[in-house]
Design a protein around this nucleic acid. Structure first.
Length: 378
RNA sequence: GGACGGGUGGGUGAGUGGUUAAAACCAGCAGACUGUAAAUCUGCCGCUCCUUGCGGGCUACGGAGGUUCGAAUCCUCCCCCGUCCA
């Protein structure tokens, strides 16, 4: 079996350190997945991701289906080979695009009809299609198609999303297994996704329904899409409390630096977020002192590194003044250096969280993070 | 010397009698960003006062006068700049 997940260490909070074996390497959990939607973590070469120690990255079914096309990627030897990434890849199913491209799609029980944001063409993404695309891409972990809705949402909308997501999860698994019977066991596992918006009982219902179907890993979706952090935590806790200890849990789309430890404390093993990469491109840098908006005039003559306590190769070599200049001049290198630093920051933060787990200090670690990020940078 | 064209807020540049402190873009300043339609988006960007309001006052479209209830816009003179002709 090329997949296996084992819990190595647990914390009184509920946090755990684990090891996820994939066909493309071992992933130490809790782990943060840099987001590489279009088969690239924007601004970073794969060499840089290796240097940073990324073990698992996220790519997107919908976007890669539209361009360059999953069959093309299959023909080119699969996503790993196509993008020359030796580490593991998790593909999101396109469920988030149901949310983010709300103006361009129509959801029915059959699936989601999208009008492409690229050329306006129409595409029907069904649970089966999402499985097919992800198998063609050859990701290590695929996600069942889900319906992600904005929060806060009316209860009726949340109920409907849960019902649909469960139905789609069942179809996803059936089709996944059918493909396995037809074509042989894929080097891929499929996770189901819990929905339920901000309704604790719906979250529990959704979780139990997915447990009935049975997945090798479970994701919590539809959070951090508008609700306060405390609510995100509450809903996450409702779900992880019901999930089996021996399966990985993936909280989708989170989070801010000061929130990561909270999620780990709730027993989350995987998290991903565009924040470190997007914020970097927008000149927001994360440091041990808090957020640093590098475009601010106050850094124009600042010879210090972005973060004096950071061990990344950007901080080892370049000054705030230089970074600020690159942003002011609109230079591409600004995005490259800033992204490198921010991803390093996130991955290093996860390392610290993993080291903290097992010693009962995660709660104080978390509150310290919240304090640092409540204040501005030094 | 002559003939045209032109001088607008930090820059480029709209505006040819009144909702014009003056479009738009750039620069500048500040902010946002959570399974990426995001190298994007938002706000501010003459000075000043306060009871912070689609508020008041002042200054402003090369300069000085003038016409008009009202001028960046019309007239006169002057000063600059560009092109062309001598």
């Amino acid at each position: 079996m090329s997949f296996c997940f084992e819990v190595l260490k647990t914390d009184p909070t509920g946090a755990r350190c684990g090891r996820l074996r994939t066909p493309h390497g071992v992933v130490e959990t809790p782990v943060f997945l840099p987001v590489g939607t279009a088969a690239t973590v924007k601004g970073l070469r794969q060499e840089a991701l290796e240097e940073l120690g990324a073990s698992l990255i996220l790519a997107n079914t919908y976007h890669l289906y539209l361009r360059p096309g999953h069959e093309r990627v299959r023909g080119l030897g699969g996503l790993h080979r196509f993008m020359s990434w030796r580490g593991a890849i998790l593909t999101d199913s396109g469920g988030y695009q149901v949310f983010s491209l709300a103006d361009l799609r129509k959801v029915t029980d059959e699936g989601v009809r999208f009008r492409s944001h690229l050329d306006g063409s129409e595409h029907l993404l069904t649970p089966e299609k999402a499985v097919e695309i992800q198998l063609a891409l050859g990701s290590d972990i695929s996600m069942a198609l889900d319906e992600c809705i904005r929060t806060p949402a009316p209860r009726a909308a949340a109920e409907s999303a849960v019902k649909r997501t469960t139905g789609w999860a069942r179809r996803s698994q059936n089709y996944f297994q059918e493909c396995a019977r037809r074509n042989g066991e894929p080097a891929q596992v499929q996770f189901g996704i819990v929905q339920g918006a901000t309704f604790a009982d719906l979250r529990r219902v959704s979780t139990r329904q997915l447990l009935d179907i049975g997945f090798p890993g479970y994701a919590i979706g539809g959070l951090a899409v508008g609700e306060p952090h405390a609510m995100t935590c509450e809903m996450t806790g409702e779900v992880t409390a019901l999930l089996p200890q021996d399966r990985p849990r993936y909280l989708m789309g989170v989070g801010r630096p000061e929130q990561l430890a909270d999620y780990a404390a709730l027993g989350v093993d995987l998290m991903d977020c565009v924040l470190p990469t997007r914020a970097a491109r927008h000149a927001c840098l994360y440091t041990s002192e808090g957020r640093l908006l590098i475009k601010n005039a106050r850094y124009a003559d600042d010879q210090r590194p972005v973060d004096g306590h950071c061990s990344c190769s950007v901080c080892a070599r370049y000054s705030r003044a230089y970074l600020r200049h690159l942003f002011a001049a609109g230079e591409l290198l600004a995005a490259v250096l800033a992204t490198h630093h921010n991803v390093h920051f996130y991955l290093d933060l996860m390392r610290q969280i993993r080291e903290t787990i097992g010693f009962g200090k995660l709660a104080s670690f978390s509150s310290e993070m919240h304090m640092r990020y409540a204040e501005g940078p030094a």
